[in-house]
């Protein structure tokens, strides 16, 4: 495998605070172009905060977040999105006052190269059927998750931050989400995935980072997964 000289996303010495509480202490990791990287960790380890810090939506953050070589740490979140990073939040963030189609078309296109609507409907056929629904939040949990992922594929963003996309979903839907992530990777998207569900992560990820108490404490690639399963169970407490 030939690796790009600089990673697509380079996070260095990232620290973040919510009010007085210091959540991220020293987070360092890279995501390479075209790969699916996973942040694993227990509840409260700092996974979601790491994604939010990259996106610029936590209270205060320091350190360095470089995307395509550009420093983003001091940029407001709208500019970070315009640089080509898209975020799918854990709570999905479907808007109740918007219909399904309006939700899908909400994120503006930030650069060319996003998926067409037809392509999105190929990935998520259910969405096409529910397009006329007047309230995005009337969809089932699985459909809302598909909508939350589908809407950020249009924007042309190259890096997708997915926060626990399988949380609370039925196994058959989790499988569909896994299939989608692999399809997106084939189309050249780079994905940073936050997961508690290690079994799911193992079906899609190329690289694993383990986060604990706001620090990256371990990392390995997919080929080393077998050798690290014991350790992982220990980290995640499963």
């Amino acid at each position: 495998m030939i690796e790009a000289p600089t990673p697509l996303l380079a996070v260095n010495a990232l620290q973040a605070w919510y009010g007085e509480s210091h959540i991220l202490h020293d987070v360092n990791f890279d995501v390479r172009e075209g790969e699916v990287a996973t942040l694993l960790g227990r509840n409260g380890a700092g996974k979601t905060t790491t994604l939010k810090s990259i996106m610029g939506i936590v209270g205060r953050r320091t350190g360095s977040v470089r995307f395509e070589g550009q420093e983003l740490i001091n940029r407001p979140s709208d500019q970070i999105a315009r640089a080509g990073i898209a975020f799918c939040p854990e709570e999905r963030g479907i808007f109740a006052s918007l219909g399904v189609e309006e939700n899908l078309l909400l994120p503006p296109v930030v650069r060319p190269g996003g998926l067409s609507l037809e392509r999105i409907f190929e990935l998520f056929p259910n969405l096409k059927e529910r397009l006329g629904s007047s309230q995005g939040t009337k969809l089932s949990g699985g459909e809302q998750q598909m909508l939350a992922i589908g809407r950020i594929l249009r924007t042309g963003a190259r890096l997708l931050l997915l926060d626990e996309p399988t949380e609370g979903l039925a196994p058959v839907i989790i499988q569909q989400i896994g299939k989608t992530i692999r399809a997106l990777k084939e189309q050249g998207f780079t994905i940073l995935l936050v997961e508690q569900n290690f079994r799911f992560a193992a079906t899609v990820a190329d690289r694993y980072y383990v986060i604990e108490h706001g620090r990256i404490i371990d990392q390995f690639v997919n080929a080393e997964l077998e050798a690290n399963v014991e350790k992982l169970h220990d980290y995640l407490g499963v």
Binding site: M55, I80, A81, G93, L106
Partner: peptide, 16 residues
Amino acid sequence: RAATENPTLVRAFGIN
């Protein structure tokens, strides 16, 4: 309407 509901997320989509 979306920004009325969740301004943080709308901003994180790239809207000022």
